[in-house]
């Protein structure tokens, strides 16, 4: 009765064959085929060529800037994301629901809008930029601006991965630690943070992956000065505009490799967390 492909557990529910076939077809057409085309192009370039293109000073500088500012922004977001998740889960205060909703703003706000808004804010004449200028600091059109844009983009990833885990954390664990004599800070450090670690790492990796590829919110504030504040995704666009398809493909292949590595890392973290903590 039920269509039973050899790899599916029999079920009385209908529609598996239809939906899985459609899912795989759509996935192939929209995602796998185009990415396959990129990988195909990259492989026809060969590793040597890719490395040679990547080791070009300007490309290397762009990749390094993207990588380092993304790491820094994700790392910066960890303590603040944790703090915000903690405050939203544990405390009730006026406006809590509003602030909870606003966390997703970087998800919902178009990147170009965020980009021009951040630029207006941090530019030397902007609200924050003018204050920074008094202290002799330049934010917009420097790597600091890139970093701040990536902080904006990455924040929700940390908060939204930590928040549900923190919410489900059994208060009994903290009570148990207290009955055993642990003070509050000790309890939080030794009993609350360890179970949150997989979520924190996952959030960090997601924020990093997003930041490395981010384009719209960064290019306005970056100023895009070669060797200084030019990010890797922009380099792809520039190479495309110069009809340098090989160059664009090489940079994209490297970025795709970073994406895949990050995805793999996230899956490893989660598999380890499941194996370790199980269900107690």
């Amino acid at each position: 009765m039920t269509p039973t492909a050899p790899f599916v557990k029999p079920s009385v529910l209908p529609g598996f064959r239809l939906t899985i076939a459609f899912t795989l077809l759509y996935l192939t057409l929209i995602v796998l085929l185009p990415i396959g085309a990129l990988l195909f192009r990259a492989s026809s370039l060969g590793v040597h060529e890719i490395v040679a293109l990547a080791l070009d000073g300007r490309t290397l500088a762009a990749l390094r800037l993207s990588f380092m500012t993304s790491l820094a922004a994700a790392a910066f977001n960890v303590p603040f994301g944790l703090l915000i998740a903690w405050v939203l889960v544990r405390y009730d205060f006026p406006g809590r629901r509003f602030f909870d909703a606003i966390i997703d703003l970087p998800f919902a706000l178009p990147t170009a809008v965020a980009g021009i808004a951040l630029t207006a804010l941090y530019a030397p004449k902007g609200w924050i930029g003018s204050i920074a200028a008094l202290a002799g600091l330049k934010i917009a059109f420097t790597p600091v601006g890139v970093f701040l844009a990536l902080v904006f983009v990455g924040l929700p990833f940390i908060v939204r991965t930590v928040q549900p885990v923190l919410g489900e954390l059994d208060r009994e664990l903290e009570e148990a630690a207290a009955t055993l004599g642990a003070g509050r800070l000790r309890t939080v450090a030794s009993v609350v943070l360890p179970p949150l670690t997989p979520a924190i790492l996952t959030g960090f990796a997601l924020a990093f992956a997003r930041a490395v590829g981010e384009y719209g919110s960064v290019i306005f504030i970056a100023g895009n000065i070669p060797y200084v504040s030019e990010i890797a995704p922009l380099l792809i666009v520039i190479k495309l505009e110069e009809f340098d398809y090989a160059g664009a493909t090489a940079v994209a292949a490297i970025m795709l490799a970073i994406s895949f590595a990050t995805l793999l890392l996230i899956n490893l973290i989660q598999a380890r967390a499941r194996a370790r903590y199980g269900h107690v």
Binding site: L27, I236, Y245, S259
Partner: peptide
Amino acid sequence: LIDLPFSVSPVVAGLVYVL
């Protein structure tokens, strides 16, 4: 695989179609 587009740079997403 379904999550993949989340971690691919939008620029790369555009590029693959160009290619």
